[in-house]
Design a protein around this nucleic acid. Structure first.
Length: 499
RNA sequence: GGGUCGAUAGCUCAAUGGUAGAGCAGCGUCCUUUUAAGUCGUUGGUUCUGGGUUCGAAUCCCAGUCGACCCA
């Protein structure tokens, strides 16, 4: 019969195919009336809490029910030591034929690495001193049909690490710790700000005008309204509207989208904290960010030596958050880097010649401040390892800040640079609607339609003087965890679809 | 967008243009306090995809896919 394949023609030895072996075990369990996917377990402890519940010297008195994924199996014949992994980490289980009974023991022997089980038993300490659950009963609550990556080397293929992050965090403890730390960082930031009477608000991701930063936005389309919307590139202009509305201290930890390159430092979507505080200014923001950073290091990172220092792998230095935070003017850094006290008086041609002599590629179409800023971002910023407030930036770099009272060419801002990376820019926020309009118009050039007139209308209603700050949460996490790439602190970094 | 490098068993990695291997995992055996447990045996490959060169290609060439790094 054409196309007919008899059962005897099918390969009968599936022992090499782990997926097939596991599927067969599942089929047998279902046939026997015990479907793991219809079972559950009522846990009493996470692994770490169970370990703490052990009372020294009191063997098998404290009962716990724990659950997690089988990550280690040591089969010793009539007993097994296994380890399960849950949110808090690993805990060892000791399964003994005498204790659980013959049938349950035989079934336990059929479990595979990766299976998710619950177990009830009592705590004891093994002869090597590890607190362990002596299992009285257990239940399989999910069958892993696919094998885990190897236990010793873990998972190292970067593509699999990013695409199947769940495997990475199961087998690579450093990844797990790093990504969990991110959650703790965000949680700490929230508590820190709430303690200071800041209100967390949520503003739109879809906007008719993408403002508040210079970046290319993603475009999408609203069908019912039949209009294009942009995904926000900043939360700034929305949050300032709330200052107008009398929400005097607001913040948002929001996803920002910028339709630009993907690199070690850039993901198309990233998380930014923006904070606004009425009746403050950029100097107030200095105190705020410094307190925030030092408390993060002290309470979340908790350096082992009790200091406020973090290793910076790229430079080999320790970044000391407990020391003096340097404050330096942008123009002074430029004068120092170029060795030219009169840099800002030089012609454009002279600036280009010098920048090229410094090994920089200069686009002749650039404005003079862009040439200068290329020197800053390529030759100065990477050298600023210790926490440094760069102040008095040229006004062209940001149209949303107040002009410095005694220098019309600079603005009342700082850019906090740590580990050679820009971590947090902050301004004394521009609240003069007329100056704001002029700055917008100067920046927009011919593209007047990009001006957010609704924001200017809000300013005309009166915005209190305020300090504002943006903090790149991803970069903050890179810094705090010593990660090499933004992809290491984002659960699911953007990759090309496929494979 | 340009350059460099990479893709081999489930995972981590080997393999002068000449029969694709190892460790772990898997499968079978022994073992009731292990710590990468140990022990004896054993299965497993579209060498990323598609072309080309060659008597012969994991290996050389071309194109593509995906990824990493550097540059713009």
């Amino acid at each position: 019969m054409p196309g007919y394949v008899s059962m005897s023609d099918l390969p009968t030895d599936i022992s090499h195919d782990q997926h097939a072996v596991r599927r067969q075990k599942l089929a047998e369990m279902r046939a026997a009336g015990s479907d793991p996917f219809r079972a559950n377990v009522a846990t009493t402890h996470f692994s770490g809490d169970a370990l703490k519940a052990y009372v020294d010297g009191q063997e098998n008195t404290v009962q716990v029910t724990v659950a997690g994924r089988l990550v280690v199996i040591r089969d010793m014949g009539k007993s097994q030591f296994v380890k399960i992994l849950d949110q808090q980490g690993q805990i060892q289980l000791y399964v003994k034929k005498d204790v659980v009974g013959e049938a349950a023991y035989l079934a336990f022997k059929k479990l595979d690495l990766g299976d998710i089980v619950g177990a009830t038993g009592t705590l004891f300490k093994t002869k090597t001193g590890e607190v362990t659950v002596r299992v009285d009963s257990y239940v399989l609550v999910a069958k892993a049909l696919r094998p885990l990556p190897e236990k010793w080397h873990g998972l190292s293929d970067p593509e699999t690490v990013y695409r199947q992050r769940y495997l990475d965090v199961i087998v690579n403890p450093e990844s797990r710790a790093r990504l969990m730390l991110r959650s703790k960082v965000v949680s700490h930031v929230r508590r820190f700000l709430e303690d200071r009477q800041f209100l967390e608000v949520e503003t739109p991701v879809l906007e008719a005008t993408a403002g508040g930063a210079a970046a290319r936005p993603f475009v999408t389309h609203h069908n019912a309204l039949d209009v294009d919307f942009f995904l926000r590139i900043a939360t700034e202009l929305r949050l300032k509207r709330m200052l107008v509305g009398g929400f005097d201290r607001v913040f948002e930890i929001g996803r920002i989208f910028r339709n630009e390159g993907v690199s070690r430092r850039h993901n198309p979507e990233f998380t930014m904290l923006e904070v606004y505080q009425a009746y403050s200014d950029y100097r107030g923001m200095m105190t705020l960010i410094r307190d925030l950073m030092t408390s993060l290091v002290r309470d979340v990172i908790k350096p082992a030596d009790g200091s406020l220092k973090i290793k910076h792998a790229a430079s080999g230095q320790d970044i000391d958050f407990g020391g003096e935070w340097r404050e330096v003017k942008y123009k002074d850094l430029i004068r120092e880097a170029t060795g030219d006290a009169d840099w800002f008086a030089r012609s454009k041609a002279e600036k280009i010649a010098k920048a090229e002599a410094m090994g920089l590629g200069i686009n002749p179409a650039w404005e003079e401040f862009e040439i200068t800023n290329e020197i800053f971002s390529k030759r100065i910023e990477p050298t600023l390892i210790q926490p440094t407030f760069v102040t008095h930036l040229p006004k062209e770099l940001c149209p949303l800040a107040k002009i410095t009272p005694d220098d019309p060419t600079t603005i009342d801002v700082f850019e906090l640079t740590i580990g050679g990376m820009e971590v947090a820019p902050a301004y004394s926020e521009q609240n003069d609607p007329d100056v704001q309009r002029q700055m917008f118009e100067a920046q927009a050039g011919e593209e007047k339609q990009n001006i957010d007139h609704d924001f200017l209308l809000a300013l005309e209603h009166g915005m209190p003087p305020a300090g504002g700050m943006g903090v790149g949460i991803d970069r903050l996490c890179i810094l705090l965890t010593g990660a090499e790439s933004i992809r290491d602190v984002i659960l699911f970094p953007q990759l090309r679809p496929g494979a």
